[in-house]
Amino acid sequence: MDLGGSYWWSALACGSGRLYAQNHDGVLTAFDPATGKKIWTVELPGQYSFTSPPTFAAGVVYTGGAGSGGTLYAVDAASGAVLWTRSVANGDNSSPAVTANGVYVSYACEQTYAFGPESGDPIWHHDTECSGGGGRTPVVADGGVWVRDDAGMTPTVLDATDGAVRGTYEAANWSPAPAFDGRQGYFVDDGVLQERHSRTLATRWKFEGDGRISTAPIVVNGYVYVGSLSGRLWALNGATGQSVWSTDVGAPINEPDEHNVSEPLTGLGAGGGLVVVPATDLLVAYGQ
């Protein structure tokens, strides 16, 4: 299916039995995932540069756009109607993180926002009095919003309720998004995976692998999966960091590029009893 658009960037989300595809020009389309039949299409208004992957939650597709300032959109997943829009300091490269209590986005200089999922009403804005282009997808876990800044500020944890700074943690600002399982957090930095407590931020174990771990980690049923630039994939015990199994995927597993629009954002996925790995020009699925 040709999605069109001015650049190669595109992104997908799934929910309510539909596949939602968005291109760089802000054309968001719902498809029947079994047949490819188009269900609805909407051209999101007011912006012309879209690099934030959409997020589906509770019958709504959330996404961001940029070009002239920034806009956060909420779209009805059944009809394609735009339910609400809100202005933000930037609309680039930040896929909305959505919970029952908030829609969270984060842009350059840690310009981070929380909005009500149904109404779009502002809840809080973490304003650092600077701005710029770009953004990073925040991670919401254990009452915190984990922010990795695109402009070089120290990675920060904000309180999900009021946006207050809860702490900072050591990681390069280009490190991939962390993953969480309860209060266990998993962070990839400088080619190494480490587990940290989400409150004390104390490191309890590290897994170096081949020293080239590149992917954002994912957690499935207590196991942590990470991939390497060498093409190695590991499944680790989340409590101990011990390798349960590993395999050679057959091609390098490149790190996610959250800043450029030259290609779609890649990452490990899981569902339906499978772990799915994009590796250069291969897509590989592993079963139980």
Rank of each mutant, 00 (worst) to 15 (best):
residue 39 I to M: 14
residue 32 D to R: 07
residue 35 T to N: 09
residue 38 K to Q: 15
residue 49 S to Q: 05
residue 38 K to F: 08
residue 49 S to C: 05
residue 33 P to N: 10
residue 22 Q to R: 00
residue 57 A to K: 10
residue 43 E to T: 09
residue 42 V to G: 01
residue 25 D to F: 03
residue 28 L to G: 02
residue 44 L to Y: 14
residue 31 F to D: 00
residue 25 D to W: 00
residue 61 V to C: 03
residue 60 V to H: 03
residue 50 F to R: 06
residue 21 A to G: 12
residue 44 L to V: 06
residue 53 P to M: 05
residue 53 P to G: 07
residue 48 Y to G: 09
residue 33 P to V: 12
residue 61 V to L: 06
residue 58 A to S: 14
residue 39 I to P: 06
residue 44 L to A: 02
residue 49 S to R: 09
residue 51 T to K: 13
residue 23 N to A: 03
residue 60 V to F: 08
residue 55 T to E: 10
residue 21 A to S: 13
residue 34 A to R: 02
residue 59 G to E: 11
residue 55 T to H: 06
residue 45 P to A: 01
residue 54 P to N: 00
residue 28 L to S: 03
residue 51 T to G: 08
residue 45 P to V: 05
residue 24 H to K: 13
residue 60 V to R: 01
residue 40 W to Y: 14
residue 42 V to A: 05
residue 36 G to N: 09
residue 37 K to R: 13
residue 60 V to K: 03
residue 57 A to M: 08
residue 27 V to P: 02
residue 22 Q to S: 07
residue 57 A to N: 11
residue 58 A to H: 15
residue 30 A to S: 12
residue 35 T to L: 11
residue 20 Y to A: 00
residue 36 G to S: 02
residue 31 F to Q: 01
residue 49 S to V: 12
residue 41 T to P: 07
residue 20 Y to N: 00
residue 44 L to T: 03
residue 45 P to E: 04
residue 40 W to C: 14
residue 57 A to E: 10
residue 53 P to D: 10
residue 31 F to N: 02
residue 27 V to R: 09
residue 47 Q to V: 10
residue 32 D to P: 02
residue 33 P to G: 12
residue 45 P to R: 01
residue 27 V to N: 11
residue 35 T to S: 15
residue 52 S to D: 10
residue 43 E to H: 00
residue 25 D to R: 02
residue 34 A to F: 07
residue 58 A to Y: 15
residue 45 P to N: 07
residue 25 D to A: 06
residue 26 G to N: 00
residue 27 V to A: 11
residue 37 K to T: 14
